[in-house]
Design a protein around this nucleic acid. Sequence first.
DNA 1: TCCTTAAGCGGAGAGCTCTCCGCTTGACCG
DNA 2: CGGTCAAGCGGAGAGCTCTCCGCTTAAGGA
Lengths: 195, 195
Amino acid sequence: MTTARPERADAARNRRKILDAAARVLTTQGAASLSLDAVAKEAGVGVGTVYRRFENRARLVYELIDENETRFQAEFATHADAPPRERLRAFLHGLAELADDNRELLLLAEASVPAGRYHSGPFRRHHEQVSQLLDALAPGADSAYLADLLLMAYTPGLLDFQREHRGWSLDRVTQGLDTLVDGIAATHSPGQLPS
Amino acid sequence: MTTARPERADAARNRRKILDAAARVLTTQGAASLSLDAVAKEAGVGVGTVYRRFENRARLVYELIDENETRFQAEFATHADAPPRERLRAFLHGLAELADDNRELLLLAEASVPAGRYHSGPFRRHHEQVSQLLDALAPGADSAYLADLLLMAYTPGLLDFQREHRGWSLDRVTQGLDTLVDGIAATHSPGQLPS
DNA sequence: TCCTTAAGCGGAGAGCTCTCCGCTTGACCG
DNA sequence: CGGTCAAGCGGAGAGCTCTCCGCTTAAGGA
């Protein structure tokens, strides 16, 4: 659809500079200091340039996360031969850990543009993966919708709220998701109907 | 816990003035113009006063919504004698309409403080209601967690994304929720327990 | 009624995100 | 190799949310 022509060489160079600068600011000064002014200064470019490359703060943060995520995807690929239910579980558990590890960063992204998440690379990929697994597990179900809902479990603000205010551990979340998956499998059971 | 002493008379008066002013700004100038500066001016108080009464923009908006919601709660009470599954469905469908009607306002609240929702009066009430209904429908399930997740379906940004980018109607959402509820009921069916 | 004081008030200003627009430069073409 | 121009650049500034703090006032006891 939106097949824009490739970035000019200087633009690509700046993109990298900004991403690297952001990572540096993040580790040295913490997420709270990750203002785009600060990033621009660290990268040695103007604020305008940052906004030209990244549209808004959330986009920059999601791109940052995206770069860290290849590791997770690779790891998940090792489960390729397990049955769908196990694969889905493994994926959802992995996602929980991922969300937990990056929670400060994700919270930041959500705070600046809440709906940005749905347009981000990671979300799109996760949605596709979960949809496919659901199709294998529960043919006939509305997998696209259910995938949306399952992924909502990883909304940074919710996870934070559950941890800080409800006092729940991450286990409670993954177990809740597991039983939900069982429920979905039960109503759309492919072959093994109750004996 | 947080049993603060009641507001002073002038404070209560200002609270009302601000809430009314906000409602007025909202209808006359639209959600986009609902800055707290504008509200303060309209109400004839200082910005500091607005923040003293409401902590942040999201809180003000949620309080505004809260005032409109009594109608919904009253309407739902009429289903009191139906079986749990029907009641839960009715509640979830009502919630969908409510979210749809207030979507501009809810989007605004989410944009300013994403996690504010979980602390809002409406969310707390909805969570309690859904938990109770789930307990009746599926004893033994982790109703508190499932209620969280079901309510995530009404996240303003998600609803907006599903409508605008995925091109889904509200019906698809409510149907998805219905089948999910069936799934929950199926894995924890009260009637099929060994007697 | 007067005194005391916690609560409330207002608005200047800090600090942020994002826009706008005049200037610069890389990429491509003849 | 020189010319053309879309793309990129920088940073001033608009507009927002929220904080801070010196002044004011409601409320309740003596």
